[in-house]
């Protein structure tokens, strides 16, 4: 791999901390929507060849279960894709927590996943952008896949990138067995831009 793309230990640490701060804002919003306590994870960061992205995502999500995911593209100082991955029970759980009865139809369920995903992506990525003095805009969220195996979420052949930076956080609820993963994928030129933004950020301390 091109050394220019590797994060130094300091850059990795700073990205982890910046992500942690932003995730706190996203988690607080999720807690407010669902009226439950949300547990935050330690952010995980990985630079991978595009061909290995699917395997990396599988490893981060943990189990080869079927998932539903939404995606949102972002552009600006940094460019890439954000995804929120819900496990099989995730949709049901969200609907329950938000007070829907059993009769929620598929369209309302999708809308719920898109809305929650949009809140998490917006809070998290805007939080990172704000700390790093970057500017981002987002596409509308869309359903990326429904009930597919985690490993099939992304078809590496459709990616035009050689390498990607993968940043993963997950939100867990205490009251039930619910976890959703928020993942951000960025291509080479954004990795380079991110590294300079992290260096500039670290110079303040």
């Amino acid at each position: 791999m091109n050394d220019q793309l590797l994060l130094t230990p300091d850059q990795r640490d700073a990205l982890q901390e910046v992500t942690n701060i932003a995730m706190g804002q996203a988690g607080a919003q999720l807690a407010q929507i669902l009226e439950v306590f949300v547990q935050l994870s330690v952010p995980r960061i990985n630079i991978t060849e595009s061909a290995n992205i699917a395997g990396n995502i599988l490893q981060l999500v943990g189990t080869p279960q079927s998932v539903t995911a939404i995606r949102q593209a972002f552009s600006g100082t940094l460019r890439g894709e954000a995804m929120v991955v819900y496990d099989e029970n995730g949709c049901r759980d969200l609907a329950d927590l938000m007070g829907y009865e059993d009769d929620i139809d598929r369209d309302s369920e999708r809308e719920l996943l898109l809305d929650v995903g949009n809140v998490l992506v917006g809070a998290c990525l805007n939080g990172i952008a704000e700390l790093l003095q970057a500017k981002l805009s987002f596409s509308a969220p869309t359903i990326m896949a429904e009930n597919v195996e985690v490993g099939r979420l992304i078809n590496p052949q459709q990616l035009t990138w050689n390498y990607a930076l993968l940043v993963e956080v997950h939100f867990t609820l205490e009251v039930r067995d619910f976890t959703c993963h928020l993942m951000t994928l960025m291509p080479e030129e954004s990795i380079v831009a991110l590294k300079s933004a992290l260096d500039a950020f670290m110079e303040n301390f």
Partner: peptide, 9 residues
């Protein structure tokens, strides 16, 4: 000192 800003935290 935390990023977790939920009132419950």
């Amino acid at each position: 000192v935390s990023a977790d800003i939920q009132p419950l935290a």
